[in-house]
C-alpha cells in the first residue's frame, strides 16, 4: 500500500510538471535534405524533436525533406540546419513561412 501511494504521488507530480506553457511565435521551415530511409527518419525525429524551440518535426522520404515548426524566440533556421547537418544529412532551406 505504501509503495502504491509513492507511485501515485510520482504520477501526480509528473502531471503537475506538464501543465502551463508560455505563448510562442511559431514559424515553419522546410529543408531539402538527404534523408532516404526509415533509419534516417528515425534519427532525425529522435534528435531534432529535442532541439530547443522545436514544436513539430516531420520527415518526408518521398521528396527527402524535413519540415520543422519552431519558436522563433528560441531558435532559428541556421541553428536547425546545423543540427540536421550534424546528424550527417544535408539541409537547405526551400520554404520558410
Amino acid at each position: 500500500m505504501k509503495k502504491l501511494a509513492i507511485f501515485a504521488c510520482t504520477l501526480a507530480l509528473v502531471a503537475v510538471a506538464t501543465s502551463s506553457k508560455p505563448k510562442t511565435v511559431k514559424r515553419t521551415v522546410v529543408y531539402a535534405s538527404t534523408v532516404e530511409c526509415k533509419n534516417c527518419e528515425k534519427k532525425v525525429m529522435e534528435n531534432i524533436s529535442f532541439e530547443k524551440g522545436v514544436k513539430d518535426v516531420s520527415v518526408d522520404l518521398s521528396d527527402r525533406s524535413v519540415k520543422i515548426v519552431f519558436d522563433e524566440a528560441k531558435t532559428d533556421t541556421t541553428t536547425l540546419a546545423k543540427a540536421i547537418r550534424k546528424l550527417g544529412y544535408g539541409a537547405k532551406v526551400v520554404k520558410f513561412e
Binding site: 538527404t34 534523408v35 532516404e36 530511409c37 533509419n39 534516417c40 550527417g88 544529412y89 544535408g90
Partner: peptide, 11 residues
Amino acid sequence: AQTPSGTPAVQ
C-alpha cells in the same frame, strides 16, 4: 562514412 550523395553509407 559518406556516399557521394552525402548520406551515411551505413543505411
